[in-house]
Amino acid sequence: MSAPKMTMAQAINTALRDAIAEDDSVVVFGEDVAQLGGVFRVTDGLHQEFGESRVFDTPLAESGIVGMAVGMAMNGMRPVVEMQFDAFAYPAFEQIVSHVAKLGNRTRGKVRLPIVIRIPYAGGIGGVEHHCDSSEAYYAHTPGLTVVAPATNADAYGLLRAAIAGSDPVVFLEPKKHYFAKEEVDVSVPVPPIGRAVVRRPGRDATLIAYGPSVPVALAAAEQAATEGRDLGVVDLRSIVPFDDETVCAEVRRTGRAVVVAEAPGFASVASEIAARVGERCFHHLEAPVRRVTGFDVPYPPPKLEHHFLPGVDRILDAVDTLQWEDEVA
């Protein structure tokens, strides 16, 4: 029997519902998450089902939301907070960077903060300014934060459950362009833990490394390459921090070629970190330098220009073409 189909919004909703039902200390709060069920309907029905003490709207202040989550976590709760959009999390940056990320270290582990900060992120939805940022590098650069970016609906469920159950703070980046795409999700099948990447497609010739919204793009590129006689594999990182060097490097050592795909501007990015790590660890196995296919180093474009910005199949395949293939070396 096949599992029920659900959207990523529904998968996350189910994860929240199951977590709230299972653990009295889980509370969900943010802007428009209660009566409305979130602007993306991710928290739909939770307030009605669990009541005001478990799922509630706050005054409109992101720093307030995250700061209060810190205190609630210090007092034994597991807050799961929503930032309405990527760029609207910035008022909370101070709390995230100075406290959420550091309180555990500051207190030699005496105070742990099991907080999940859910952020709808990245583009591809024709959103106007401030609604499409890929902000992962800010968080990934901050020691103390776990940074997760699911690409499948099953992972969205499983990784969120793990994030809520864990003892450290997690920035949970939800690729918003996936919110309404349906996939089969069997919530009873466990997914690999946070920190483990997954090979979504094995390949002989080169490895595409991606996370979040770029995974389906990488898979589409591999699909296209296959029709042109090139066998590309795809690794889905699932979590940016912790980073799974082992899985990534095992794949790259097998193929000898790698392209990192990510939507964020490439300069000083997560993609750059991945390329550097792979270069350091797989140097003797590489046939060509690791390439990055990323957004340009510009602010996220207005809707009518975003297709020029987003890494697509063609740009990925162009990068693959430059990986110094023997048959092309004169």
Partner: peptide, 19 residues
């Protein structure tokens, strides 16, 4: 017609070499 080159034109007063 939105001009794709606008993406790069205004980020800095003078575009960086990378841009």
């Amino acid at each position: 017609v939105a001009d794709p080159e606008d993406l790069f034109a205004h980020v800095y007063s003078t575009p960086t070499p990378q841009l």
